[in-house]
Design a protein around this nucleic acid. Structure first.
Lengths: 218, 218
DNA sequence: CCTACCGATCGGTAGG
DNA sequence: CCTACCGATCGGTAGG
């Protein structure tokens, strides 16, 4: 805190995100700081638009120091992805969702997920980078983490009361995930230009349209 | 065609897209070739992941030659965007859509748009690049092109027969666009890993859920 | 974990 | 439209 370098770091350590796991050793703390710095820069400028020197500066250490924690640049990106991919961010919300009927369950899940993603809309950018600059090569690394909770959620839907239309459950799941993309991306894309009439109560309406779309009764 | 350079170019000019407007002068033809080459590389590797030398090679000319047609690298990206942004690609489909009822109109529009985007799923990447690497700075340039046809489509919906639920028309429009993002992005993201049950008849189901969601009668 | 350095490549330009 | 070049910056490493 009182060294020159620590001071230098503090000027650039803006909007630091609370780490997923509180780091125990000093090495782990530096690693966490690096991941957080890299995340901010990747989100803002893309993978190839971010240099190792910028990451070092943002984290408050010298270029060479990075390589004590990561083998190369791509390893850093993978590290960020494994901690901050929107699918992972959203998982706790999905697991916490509750409801006796299909409608209340999905509505609760939707709003919990929005609350989680709404603060961190930026994380969608990580997904886009993964899609464009890595051709989605790393998503498979998360698959075994994501699959079991998703299956559990599917079972929760099946057990819930309420008349579902004749739609295969996998399609219900996929379109439920799609609901968020449809909302966030129309927001991101049209961003500043979007007429207010397309914004007021939009998520409410989106969820409503979706639920009315899969249920037999209003 | 018989010069050495023309031969060199032909080896790299794979999957050339039919130009939007058939170029008249030689300069316009070279410009079109450059845009097409740049589009392929941007889509594959992102903006910062593509170098001017790669674009020159892919187009079959020398690095310096590019600057007869574009002031700098960003100008090329803007050029690509203004010709190939998915919104523009989809516009003719939207304008050609027909139907007496809201349901038949939107169903027709959806399938026409799918046919347009389905061949060029890659174009979504242009949108992602614009979002991440340019913070959507260029979308406003297309706004005046996009807005009038969109408003006309809105009027077409209003005039069509069929009972719409109590949802503001702007929200109907926005969620209709979102429908495509929800479908394409769930496809791209899970890509290879997605269970077959999430794929069979998926777009059909998505459109069905959407229409059932906005209409009062099944 | 830093300093000092490596070869390679970057976007862009001068001059023809 | 090409050749030859510019200074700047890239990812990564050796050595301490």
């Amino acid at each position: 805190m009182t060294t020159k370098r620590a001071t230098t770091r503090s000027t650039s350590a803006k909007a630091a995100t609370k780490p997923v796991v509180e780091p125990a050793t000093k090495g782990e703390r530096t690693r966490a700081i690096l991941l957080d710095a890299a995340k901010r820069l990747f989100v803002a400028n893309g993978y190839h638009g971010t240099s190792m020197r910028e990451i070092a500066d943002e984290a408050g250490l010298a270029l060479g120091g990075i390589y004590n924690h990561f083998g190369n640049k791509e390893d850093i990106f993978v590290g960020v992805l494994m901690e901050r991919h929107p699918f992972l961010v959203v998982l706790p919300a999905l697991q916490a969702a509750q409801g006796q009927t299909v409608e209340t369950l999905l509505r609760d899940a939707a709003w919990r997920m929005l609350a989680e993603l709404g603060q961190n809309q930026e994380f969608l950018n990580l997904m886009f980078i993964e899609l464009v600059e890595f051709e989605a090569r790393h998503v498979s690394l998360m698959f075994e983490t994501l699959f079991p909770p998703l299956m559990q959620f599917a079972q929760q839907i099946e057990k819930a009361r309420g008349p579902l239309r004749d739609i295969p459950l996998p399609i219900v799941l996929r379109s439920f995930l799609g609901l968020f993309f449809s909302y966030f991306i129309t927001d991101l894309i049209m961003g500043g230009q979007m007429p207010a009439a397309m914004k007021v109560g939009a998520f409410d309406h989106f969820v409503d349209i979706y639920l009315h779309g899969i249920l037999t009764e209003g």
